[in-house]
Protein backbone atom coordinates (compact mmCIF):
# COMPACT_ATOMS: atom_id res chain seq x y z
CA UNK A 1 0.00 0.00 0.00
CA UNK A 2 1.40 3.36 -1.05
CA UNK A 3 0.22 5.54 1.81
CA UNK A 4 1.82 8.63 0.32
CA UNK A 5 -0.21 8.17 -2.87
CA UNK A 6 -3.40 7.63 -0.88
CA UNK A 7 -2.77 10.76 1.16
CA UNK A 8 -2.02 12.76 -1.98
CA UNK A 9 -5.18 11.52 -3.68
CA UNK A 10 -7.30 12.41 -0.66
CA UNK A 11 -5.71 15.86 -0.43
CA UNK A 12 -6.31 16.46 -4.11
CA UNK A 13 -9.92 15.31 -3.89
CA UNK A 14 -10.59 17.43 -0.80
CA UNK A 15 -8.98 20.53 -2.28
CA UNK A 16 -10.90 20.04 -5.51
CA UNK A 17 -14.21 19.85 -3.65
CA UNK A 18 -13.49 22.86 -1.46
CA UNK A 19 -12.56 25.04 -4.42
CA UNK A 20 -14.87 23.65 -7.06
CA UNK A 21 -18.23 23.39 -5.27
CA UNK A 22 -18.67 27.13 -4.55
CA UNK A 23 -17.58 27.84 -8.11
CA UNK A 24 -20.03 25.25 -9.44
CA UNK A 25 -22.88 26.80 -7.45
CA UNK A 26 -22.14 30.23 -8.88
CA UNK A 27 -21.87 28.82 -12.40
CA UNK A 28 -24.90 26.55 -12.15
CA UNK A 29 -27.33 29.27 -11.02
CA UNK A 30 -27.27 31.42 -14.16
CA UNK A 31 -27.11 28.28 -16.33
CA UNK A 32 -30.26 26.97 -14.67
CA UNK A 33 -32.29 30.19 -14.58
CA UNK A 34 -31.05 32.85 -16.90
CA UNK A 35 -31.10 33.25 -20.64
CA UNK A 36 -28.00 35.02 -21.87
CA UNK A 37 -25.96 35.29 -25.00
CA UNK A 38 -23.39 32.52 -25.20
CA UNK A 39 -25.22 30.28 -22.73
CA UNK A 40 -25.01 27.39 -25.19
CA UNK A 41 -21.26 27.90 -25.45
CA UNK A 42 -20.79 27.95 -21.67
CA UNK A 43 -22.93 24.83 -21.39
CA UNK A 44 -20.80 23.12 -24.04
CA UNK A 45 -17.52 24.18 -22.39
CA UNK A 46 -18.68 22.84 -19.04
CA UNK A 47 -19.57 19.51 -20.64
CA UNK A 48 -16.43 19.28 -22.79
CA UNK A 49 -14.15 17.62 -20.17
CA UNK A 50 -16.68 14.79 -20.03
CA UNK A 51 -16.34 14.10 -23.75
CA UNK A 52 -12.66 14.71 -24.44
CA UNK A 53 -10.22 11.80 -24.07
CA UNK A 54 -8.22 12.44 -20.86
CA UNK A 55 -4.96 12.30 -22.79
CA UNK A 56 -6.12 14.99 -25.20
CA UNK A 57 -7.25 17.20 -22.33
CA UNK A 58 -3.99 16.44 -20.50
CA UNK A 59 -1.96 17.33 -23.56
CA UNK A 60 -3.58 20.75 -23.93
CA UNK A 61 -3.33 21.45 -20.22
CA UNK A 62 0.34 20.52 -20.32
CA UNK A 63 0.81 23.02 -23.14
CA UNK A 64 -1.13 25.76 -21.37
CA UNK A 65 0.54 25.10 -18.00
CA UNK A 66 4.08 24.85 -19.46
CA UNK A 67 6.91 27.11 -18.26
CA UNK A 68 6.86 28.93 -21.60
CA UNK A 69 3.12 29.66 -21.50
CA UNK A 70 1.65 32.86 -20.16
CA UNK A 71 -0.24 31.00 -17.44
CA UNK A 72 2.82 28.98 -16.44
CA UNK A 73 5.02 32.07 -16.27
CA UNK A 74 2.47 34.09 -14.35
CA UNK A 75 1.98 31.28 -11.87
CA UNK A 76 5.71 30.75 -11.23
CA UNK A 77 6.10 34.52 -11.01
CA UNK A 78 3.42 34.68 -8.34
CA UNK A 79 4.20 31.56 -6.35
CA UNK A 80 7.69 30.53 -7.37
CA UNK A 81 6.28 27.09 -8.23
CA UNK A 82 5.78 25.34 -11.50
CA UNK A 83 2.37 24.31 -12.81
CA UNK A 84 3.55 21.20 -14.59
CA UNK A 85 4.54 18.10 -12.64
CA UNK A 86 3.39 19.74 -9.41
CA UNK A 87 0.47 19.54 -7.01
CA UNK A 88 -0.64 23.04 -8.06
CA UNK A 89 -0.97 21.98 -11.68
CA UNK A 90 -2.67 18.76 -10.65
CA UNK A 91 -5.24 20.69 -8.65
CA UNK A 92 -5.92 23.15 -11.44
CA UNK A 93 -6.33 20.29 -13.91
CA UNK A 94 -8.56 18.49 -11.45
CA UNK A 95 -10.81 21.56 -11.16
CA UNK A 96 -11.24 21.69 -14.94
CA UNK A 97 -11.72 17.97 -15.41
CA UNK A 98 -14.35 17.83 -12.69
CA UNK A 99 -16.32 20.82 -13.92
CA UNK A 100 -19.14 18.77 -15.49
CA UNK A 101 -19.36 16.43 -12.49
CA UNK A 102 -19.79 19.36 -10.14
CA UNK A 103 -21.87 21.74 -12.25
CA UNK A 104 -24.39 19.44 -13.87
CA UNK A 105 -26.04 17.91 -10.77
CA UNK A 106 -26.24 21.34 -9.12
CA UNK A 107 -27.60 22.91 -12.30
CA UNK A 108 -30.31 20.25 -12.54
CA UNK A 109 -31.22 20.75 -8.89
CA UNK A 110 -31.48 24.53 -9.30
CA UNK A 111 -33.53 24.13 -12.47
CA UNK A 112 -36.04 22.05 -10.53
CA UNK A 113 -36.79 24.93 -8.13
CA UNK A 114 -39.85 26.81 -9.43
CA UNK A 115 -39.28 30.45 -10.28
CA UNK A 116 -42.19 31.42 -8.03
CA UNK A 117 -40.45 29.91 -5.01
CA UNK A 118 -37.49 32.26 -5.38
CA UNK A 119 -39.77 35.19 -6.21
CA UNK A 120 -41.76 34.52 -3.05
CA UNK A 121 -38.52 34.75 -1.07
CA UNK A 122 -37.62 38.07 -2.72
CA UNK A 123 -41.10 39.44 -2.08
CA UNK A 124 -40.61 38.50 1.58
CA UNK A 125 -37.59 40.79 1.60
CA UNK A 126 -34.82 38.18 1.38
CA UNK A 127 -31.79 39.46 -0.52
CA UNK A 128 -30.23 37.44 -3.32
CA UNK A 129 -27.68 36.00 -0.88
CA UNK A 130 -30.24 35.25 1.79
CA UNK A 131 -32.36 33.55 -0.85
CA UNK A 132 -29.36 31.46 -1.89
CA UNK A 133 -28.60 30.36 1.67
CA UNK A 134 -32.09 29.98 3.05
CA UNK A 135 -34.05 28.80 0.03
CA UNK A 136 -32.05 27.75 -2.99
CA UNK A 137 -29.27 25.71 -1.37
CA UNK A 138 -31.56 23.85 1.05
CA UNK A 139 -33.80 22.92 -1.88
CA UNK A 140 -30.87 22.05 -4.17
CA UNK A 141 -29.11 20.10 -1.42
CA UNK A 142 -29.39 16.64 -3.06
CA UNK A 143 -27.77 18.07 -6.19
CA UNK A 144 -24.93 19.58 -4.19
CA UNK A 145 -24.33 16.28 -2.38
CA UNK A 146 -24.32 14.46 -5.73
CA UNK A 147 -21.81 16.91 -7.10
CA UNK A 148 -19.62 16.47 -4.04
CA UNK A 149 -19.58 12.69 -4.18
CA UNK A 150 -19.11 12.49 -7.94
CA UNK A 151 -16.24 14.98 -7.85
CA UNK A 152 -14.56 13.23 -4.93
CA UNK A 153 -14.73 9.76 -6.43
CA UNK A 154 -13.83 10.95 -9.88
CA UNK A 155 -10.75 12.79 -8.58
CA UNK A 156 -9.55 9.67 -6.75
CA UNK A 157 -9.87 7.67 -9.93
CA UNK A 158 -8.59 10.15 -12.53
CA UNK A 159 -5.63 8.69 -14.39
CA UNK A 160 -4.97 10.07 -17.88
CA UNK A 161 -4.98 13.78 -17.15
CA UNK A 162 -3.00 13.30 -13.93
CA UNK A 163 -0.35 11.31 -15.74
CA UNK A 164 -0.06 13.88 -18.53
CA UNK A 165 0.02 16.99 -16.35
CA UNK A 166 1.58 15.67 -13.14
CA UNK A 167 3.69 12.80 -14.27
CA UNK A 168 4.59 10.27 -11.62
CA UNK A 169 6.61 12.00 -8.93
CA UNK A 170 6.58 10.22 -5.59
CA UNK A 171 5.02 12.41 -2.91
CA UNK A 172 4.26 15.23 -5.32
CA UNK A 173 2.05 13.98 -8.12
CA UNK A 174 1.77 10.22 -7.72
CA UNK A 175 -1.88 9.65 -6.92
CA UNK A 176 -3.45 6.34 -6.02
CA UNK A 177 -4.47 5.51 -9.60
CA UNK A 178 -0.96 6.20 -10.85
CA UNK A 179 0.49 4.15 -8.02
CA UNK A 180 -1.70 1.20 -9.02
CA UNK A 181 -0.48 1.47 -12.60
CA UNK A 182 3.08 1.68 -11.29
CA UNK A 183 2.71 -1.46 -9.20
CA UNK A 184 1.27 -3.41 -12.09
CA UNK A 185 4.14 -2.30 -14.28
CA UNK A 186 6.48 -3.48 -11.54
CA UNK A 187 4.70 -6.87 -11.26
CA UNK A 188 3.55 -6.06 -7.70
CA UNK A 189 0.08 -7.52 -8.14
CA UNK A 190 -0.55 -7.75 -4.40
CA UNK A 191 0.09 -4.01 -3.90
CA UNK A 192 -2.02 -3.09 -6.93
CA UNK A 193 -4.77 -5.36 -5.66
CA UNK A 194 -4.84 -3.75 -2.22
CA UNK A 195 -5.05 -0.24 -3.61
CA UNK A 196 -7.65 -1.20 -6.22
CA UNK A 197 -9.75 -2.83 -3.54
CA UNK A 198 -9.48 0.34 -1.46
CA UNK A 199 -10.75 2.44 -4.37
CA UNK A 200 -13.63 0.02 -4.88
CA UNK A 201 -14.56 0.33 -1.21
CA UNK A 202 -14.39 4.12 -1.33
CA UNK A 203 -16.48 4.31 -4.48
CA UNK A 204 -19.03 1.92 -3.05
CA UNK A 205 -19.23 3.79 0.23
CA UNK A 206 -19.62 7.06 -1.63
CA UNK A 207 -22.50 5.81 -3.74
CA UNK A 208 -24.14 4.23 -0.72
CA UNK A 209 -23.67 7.39 1.30
CA UNK A 210 -25.04 9.49 -1.53
CA UNK A 211 -28.10 7.31 -1.81
CA UNK A 212 -28.68 7.45 1.93
CA UNK A 213 -28.19 11.21 2.13
CA UNK A 214 -30.37 12.17 -0.81
CA UNK A 215 -33.04 9.74 0.30
CA UNK A 216 -32.99 11.17 3.80
CA UNK A 217 -33.07 14.75 2.53
CA UNK A 218 -35.81 13.84 0.06
CA UNK A 219 -37.97 12.33 2.79
CA UNK A 220 -37.28 15.29 5.04
CA UNK A 221 -38.66 17.62 2.43
CA UNK A 222 -41.81 15.65 1.95
CA UNK A 223 -42.85 15.26 5.56
Amino acid sequence: MDWGALSLSLQLAAATIVLLLPLAVLLARPLAWREFRGKGLVDALVTLPLLLPPTVLGFYLLTVFGPNSILGQTWSGLTGRSLVFSFDGLLLASLLVNLPFAVQPIQRAFAAIPRETREAAWCCGLSTWQTLWRVELPLAWPGVISALVLTFVHTLGEFGVVLMVGGNLDGATRTLSIAIYDRVQGFDDAGAGQMSALLVVIAFAAVGGLHWLTHRVGVGRRD
Partner: peptide
Protein backbone atom coordinates in the same frame (compact mmCIF):
# COMPACT_ATOMS: atom_id res chain seq x y z
CA UNK B 1 -45.57 43.79 -1.14
CA UNK B 2 -47.45 40.77 0.11
CA UNK B 3 -47.94 38.64 -2.96
CA UNK B 4 -50.12 35.54 -2.94
CA UNK B 5 -49.02 33.44 -5.88
CA UNK B 6 -51.42 31.40 -7.92
CA UNK B 7 -49.76 28.15 -6.85
CA UNK B 8 -48.98 29.37 -3.30
CA UNK B 9 -45.16 29.30 -3.75
CA UNK B 10 -44.57 28.11 -0.20
CA UNK B 11 -41.06 27.03 0.70
CA UNK B 12 -41.35 23.23 0.98
CA UNK B 13 -38.37 22.79 3.32
Amino acid sequence: VGLVFQHYALLPH
